[in-house]
Amino acid sequence: MATASDVKRNLLLSALPVAELERWLPDLEPVDLPLGHVVFESDSTLRHVYFPTTAIVSLLYVLENGASAEIAVVGREGLVGVSLFMGGNSTPNRAVVQSAGQGYRLGAHALNAEFSRAGPVLRLLLCYTQALIAQMSQTAVCNRHHSLDQQLCRWLLLSLDRLDGDDLEMTQELIASMLGVRRTGVTQAASQLQAAGLIRYARGRISVLDRPGLEKRTCECYQVVKKEYERLLPGPGPGR
C-alpha cells in the first residue's frame, strides 16, 4: 500500500485533508511512466486518473493528418484525467509522457465516490481544473501571438517547474511535436538561447544555465499560468 509520505510528492495529493488522503491510500497504485508512454488516447474511456510525482505528462491535441500540439503540461502539481470527474469520462486529447518518472493512479470508482461527497476534495479538484483550463487558454494565446523563441522559453520554464533540478531529457523532435512547429524552428530557437548563455543543449539533454535570464526572455504567459496555480491551489506551487 502507498504511504502518505510517498504520495505527498504530488502536490495535489499533499493538499488533501488527512482523513481524505487516508481513505485514498489503499486505492492509490504506484505506476511507472516511461518516456513516450500514452497514458490515454483521444476519445478513450478513462478508467483512472494519474498523479505524477517525478514524471511530466503532456496533453496533446492531434489532428486528422497526424499533426499535434501540446495544450497543457501536467507534473507533480496536479493530475491527468480531469474529464473523469467532470462527467465526460473521455476527452478528445491524448496524454503522453514527455519526461519519464513515476506517479500514482486512482480508479474511477474511488475518485467519483470521493467527488460525490461534495466535501473539500470536490473544491480542490475544481480549483485544479480551473488552473488547468487557464494554462490551456494561455497556451492557445501564446501559440498565436508570441514568437517561437518566447514559446520555447515558456515551455522550458513550465517543464522545469514540474521537475527537480535544471535538466530536461528532451529531443528537438519531441519539442517540435509539443509546440506544433517544424524541427528547424526549434533548432534555431534553441541555438539562440544557447548563444545567449541561457541553456546548454547536447545529445537530447537541455540544461538551464540562467533561469532568471530565461524568465526575462519569455512572454507574460508563463507568469500568468504560474500565478493562477498559486492563487487557486494551497501550499507551494509547482515553481516554488
Rank of each mutant, 00 (worst) to 15 (best):
F85K: 09
L111C: 14
Y222R: 10
Q98M: 11
V141H: 13
P236K: 08
D149I: 00
A195N: 08
D27S: 13
S159A: 14
T139S: 11
Q135D: 06
D6M: 06
L13V: 07
R94L: 03
S90G: 04
G87S: 10
C127S: 15
I71H: 06
P17E: 05
L152Q: 08
P34Q: 10
L46S: 05
Y61M: 00
A113F: 14
R9P: 10
V18W: 01
A190C: 11
C127L: 13
A196L: 03
S137Q: 08
Y104P: 11
G78P: 02
F85N: 12
R76Q: 08
K8Q: 12
G88W: 05
P30K: 12
A202W: 06
L12W: 09
R9Y: 12
L124H: 13
V38T: 12
L132F: 09
G66I: 01
G119T: 10
L193C: 07
C221L: 00
A100N: 07
V181T: 09
E77H: 07
C127I: 00
Q151S: 09
C153P: 12
R154T: 05
W155N: 10
L12M: 07
D32G: 07
R47H: 13
L12I: 06
S14K: 14
A202V: 05
A134Q: 11
N89A: 14
G165L: 07
G107A: 07
R123Q: 14
Q194P: 06
K227C: 10
L179R: 11
Q130W: 08
T187V: 02
L158Q: 08
Q138L: 04
H48I: 01
D6N: 14
V97C: 08
T184W: 15
R23A: 09
D6L: 08
S83W: 03
Y201D: 08
V96E: 09
I199P: 02
P212N: 13
A176V: 13
K227D: 13
I56L: 12
G237C: 06
L193M: 11
G66W: 04
G81M: 04
E41W: 03
V31W: 02
E77N: 02
I56V: 12
T218Y: 03
A67P: 00
D164S: 14
V121S: 15
Q102G: 11
T91I: 07
N65C: 01
C153L: 08
P236S: 05
G81L: 02
H48N: 15
M136F: 08
G237L: 11
L174P: 04
L28G: 05
A19Q: 12
M1P: 15
E70K: 14
T171V: 00
M136I: 07
E173A: 11
P120N: 02
V49T: 09
S90L: 05
L28S: 03
V141Q: 15
G185V: 00
R144T: 09
L106A: 07
E41H: 09
D27A: 12
L12S: 03
M170V: 08
N89L: 09
L168Y: 05
D32E: 15
R105L: 00
G81W: 01
R211A: 11
R94A: 08
M1L: 13
H145G: 02
L158R: 15
G180M: 01
D6H: 14
E169K: 15
Y222G: 04
S207H: 13
G75I: 00
E173W: 15
T187I: 00
A55C: 08
A72V: 02
W155S: 06
N89Y: 06
L13D: 09
L174Q: 10
I206T: 10
